[in-house]
Amino acid sequence: MIIKWFKPVSIYDLAFSLQRLTGIILAFYLCLHLAYLSTLSNPKLYESLIEITVSPEFLYLDAVLFLAGIYHGVNGFRIIIHELGYLHKHRMEMLIFTVVLTFLVWIFSLYMVIL
């Protein structure tokens, strides 16, 4: 039944599906992050794992993770505004603003990482 979350009829459904998907990705990342941190008691193991994460191949995944996190946060604010009962008639403008802001923050974050 959960597959019905991902059955978009309109662009807003797509935004909702992406919110769920990015939420799942972030939850998975959090588990992975905590697993990493749990190796702190074993410095050798921790260092070997950190070497993997700082590899250039892994940075592409980091970029995708940034995008997922930024979208989840910005879109979350959009939903909060609507859930407070505001700007329902301007939901298309809000969604466009969300997408634009997501990409701007993402590009800025990538720029900061590359620097």
Partner: peptide, 22 residues
């Protein structure tokens, strides 16, 4: 979950999503 699909398809354009939030 504020997917807003209801407001998009409502043939009477009554914004059910807004009613739920109010």
């Amino acid at each position: 979950h504020s997917a807003m699909a209801c407001s998009e398809v409502c043939p009477k354009k009554i914004e059910p999503a807004k009613a739920i939030q109010l």
